Computed example of a mutant assay.
Amino acid sequence: MLNGQIIKGIGGFYYVDTQVGLYECRARGIFRKQKVTPLVGDRVAISVVDEENKKGVIEEINKRDTELVRPPIANVNKALIVFAIKNPKPNLSLLDRFIVLAEKEGLEIVIILTKADLDDENILDEVKSTYELSGYKVIPVSNKTKLNIDKVKDELAGNVVVFAGPSGVGKSSLLNEIDKNFKLQTGEVSDKIKRGKHTTRHAELLKLECGGMVADTPGFSSLTLDDISETELKEFFIEFDEFDDCRFGSRCIHEKEPSCAVKEAVERGKISKKRYDSYIQLLNEIRQGKRRY
């Protein structure tokens, strides 16, 4: 058998990159019985059924280091979460959902803000200060002026990275700028609804000239937090970690409890009030069972 990694999956076919070439594979029926779906990024073992035409069958799927549900990618170690400064304006509640899901998987997170050259409402400084205060690296970029393209390359080099964010923010355009070998389809933002047209139809791992691999994924306007409980959510707001000396200790969910160190930190400006309000919104949605955005 050959060992490789799934770099693309379309219509039940999985394209496995091995040391001796790319094979188009089907998955064994046993996976369906076990309710296991191969994911892009999976490290697999395949048997070759047609060497001339590079056809094979996925026989084994190795244990995953990480697994994201939306986008459905396995074994990535870093998330570049991409939002635009304008067209569409950044939806910070949606950004926080991406962050929570990436934190749940233990991924390193970098926030990329595209279309920085269109920042005529000073949105960039506001968003940047909010998330830098929370402990995240924030990189504004512009394809037009080439602002910080090299910095994004540095974040990609040597990593398996998920490139995620809502539609219309310019993920594919940025990847085309980062690696000139890419010819990813891009789309305009609808003038009527200010949302991007879905140009990436499937998840795919792309090899980079600068080293490493990146997953170009479909854009999403909704994310679910189905697997996160109201007592667990606070763990994924990393800025809360510094203020863990609440009166109720680990039982405190930083909402209505007295002598809450997190709430006091918000009042002192040590924690962003916007991030805290977002936390409370997500907490209420989880509690009430409203898990779709």
Results as ranks from 00 to 15, higher is better:
Ser167Lys: 07
Tyr279Ser: 05
Ser142Cys: 09
Phe243Trp: 12
Arg268Gln: 15
Leu156Lys: 00
Leu22Arg: 11
Ala157Leu: 13
Gln288Ile: 03
Leu39Arg: 03
Ala116Asp: 06
Pro140Tyr: 05
Arg43Val: 11
Met1Ile: 10
Pro72Gln: 05
Val82Leu: 10
Ile46Cys: 07
Phe163Cys: 14
Lys89Trp: 01
Arg201Ser: 04
Leu208Thr: 13
Ile73Ala: 11
Phe237Cys: 04
Leu92Ile: 15
Arg247Trp: 06
Asn62Val: 08
Val20Ile: 15
Ala265Asp: 02
Ala102Thr: 09
Asp50His: 06
Pro140Gln: 04
Arg26Val: 07
Lys151Thr: 02
Glu52Cys: 08
Pro140Lys: 05
Leu175Gly: 06
Met1Trp: 08
Lys8His: 07
Val49Tyr: 04
Met213Asp: 12
Glu264His: 03
Glu239Ile: 12
Ala157Gln: 13
Lys270Tyr: 15
Ile149Arg: 09
Cys252His: 01
Glu24His: 02
Ile46Gly: 08
Ser142Met: 09
Val169Asn: 10
Arg251Ile: 04
Glu235Leu: 03
Lys183Thr: 08
Val127Gly: 05
Ala45Pro: 00
Leu124Pro: 11
Leu184Asp: 04
Ser190Gln: 00
Ile149Thr: 15
Gly212Arg: 02
Val162Tyr: 04
Arg70Cys: 00
Phe248Glu: 03
Ile280Cys: 06
Ile6Ser: 03
Asp117Gly: 01
Gly4Arg: 14
Asn181His: 04
Leu282Tyr: 05
Lys55Gln: 14
Asp125Cys: 05
Ile7Pro: 12
Ile286Asn: 13
Ile193His: 07
Ser93Lys: 13
Ile109Val: 10
Ile139Lys: 12
Lys273Arg: 15
Glu105Asp: 11
Gln34Ala: 11
Val160Gly: 04
Leu283Ala: 05
Phe236Gly: 06
Leu2Gln: 15
Pro258Trp: 10
Val160Asp: 08
Gly211Lys: 07
Gly12Pro: 11
Asn181Gln: 07
Glu204Asn: 09
Ala164Asp: 08
Glu132Tyr: 09
Ile30Val: 14
Leu2Ile: 12
Cys210Gly: 09
Gln288Asp: 15
Ile286Pro: 12
Gln185His: 09
Ser259Tyr: 14
Lys86Tyr: 14
Gly187Glu: 07
Phe237Ala: 00
Glu24Met: 02
Val16Met: 00
